[in-house]
Amino acid sequence: MEGWLVSGSRLGEIGFWADRTPVHEAARRGEILQLQQLIANGACVNLVTYDSITPLHEASLRGQTQCVKLLLAAGAQVDARNIDGSTPLCDACASGSIECVKVLLSHGAKVNPPLYTASPLHEACMNGSPECVRLLIDVGANLEAHDCHFGTPLHVACAREHLDCVKLLLNAGANVNAAKLHETALHHAAKVKNADLVEMLVEFGGNIYARDNRGKKPSDYTCKSSQTAKCLEYYEKTPLSLSQLCRVSLRKATGQQGLAKIAKLNIPLPLMKYLSYN
């Protein structure tokens, strides 16, 4: 997502400073025939604009799958970074284009590029694209990648109230109590006043007593008598059932890698579904 990240670019690896070119415009607009002709006439596919955006960034950000394929076939650098540090895969996830994401990954795009800010998984959660989130998880995206402004992908998904993405992250083993300045996903859920989100996080072991850097619990960010406040008040007064506590503890002990093997355990199907929150 252009302008959302803060990082350095690597201009020396992808070209030189240039104005926006016809290749950029064709890629942005999805003009396949025009792009083919430009490439056939020798146009460079790795030229960068003043903000270090390549044609591949343009095509990825706008979900132009065929243009992405053409550019990659012509030698576009799959992990080029723009001035914000964003790679084409980040931009494809920001656009929610699952097809572009698949193409980029098939050409070796790094699912965990060495960024100090938002990862492709952050972008998919920001956009609210469960398909992209699921695919990134399947190919090994770091669930605990930390952005200095937004925290983990779980923080982002909760702040944007993308419950499908939150459920995918939690089921895959994301740390429900990961903190950004001591602020947890539950703090975000309380701030956006989403009782369903609060309930989901608590069921996965969210700590309702966690305090942020201001010393406030999630419930301190709710309005009295609101549904969110009532939900948190209920959990403060009513401890989780023994079966629920066992489920949370077992999943925590199993770890992210082990959770994927639950379906292979020789245990009754109802218990397997319970452990997998199905």
Score class of each variant (00 low, 15 high):
M1A: 06
E2D: 12
W4L: 10
V6N: 05
S7Y: 06
L11V: 01
G12D: 00
G12C: 01
E13P: 05
I14E: 05
I14R: 03
D19Y: 08
V23I: 13
H24T: 03
A27D: 11
R28L: 11
L33D: 15
Q34T: 14
Q34F: 05
Q37W: 11
G42P: 06
V45M: 06
T49F: 00
P55D: 05
L56N: 08
H57L: 02
E58M: 11
E58Y: 05
S60M: 07
R62C: 01
G63P: 10
Q66W: 04
N82P: 05
I83Q: 12
I83C: 12
D84S: 07
D84R: 03
S86N: 09
P88M: 03
C90V: 05
A92L: 00
S95Y: 00
K102S: 12
L104V: 03
L105V: 07
K110S: 11
L115E: 14
L121M: 00
C125W: 06
G128T: 04
P130I: 05
P130Y: 10
E131N: 13
C132I: 08
V133S: 00
R134D: 12
D138N: 13
D138M: 14
G140S: 02
A141Y: 13
L143Q: 08
L143K: 09
A145K: 00
H146G: 03
H146R: 13
D147T: 10
C158E: 00
A159W: 14
D164E: 14
D164Y: 08
L170E: 13
G173C: 10
G173M: 10
V176W: 14
L181T: 07
L181W: 14
L181H: 15
E183A: 14
H187V: 11
H188L: 06
A189F: 09
K193F: 01
D196M: 01
E199L: 09
M200C: 06
M200D: 04
V202N: 02
I208S: 03
Y209E: 15
A210D: 06
R214H: 14
G215V: 03
K216T: 08
K216P: 04
K217C: 03
P218F: 01
S219G: 01
D220W: 08
T222G: 06
C223P: 02
C223D: 07
S225G: 06
S226V: 04
A229L: 07
A229E: 06
E233S: 14
E233P: 02
Y234P: 00
K237Y: 06
P239H: 04
L240M: 03
S241K: 13
L245I: 02
C246Q: 15
R251P: 01
A253I: 14
A253T: 11
A253P: 04
G255H: 09
G255K: 09
L259P: 00
L259W: 09
K261T: 04
A263S: 15
I267M: 02
I267A: 00
M272P: 01
S276Q: 15
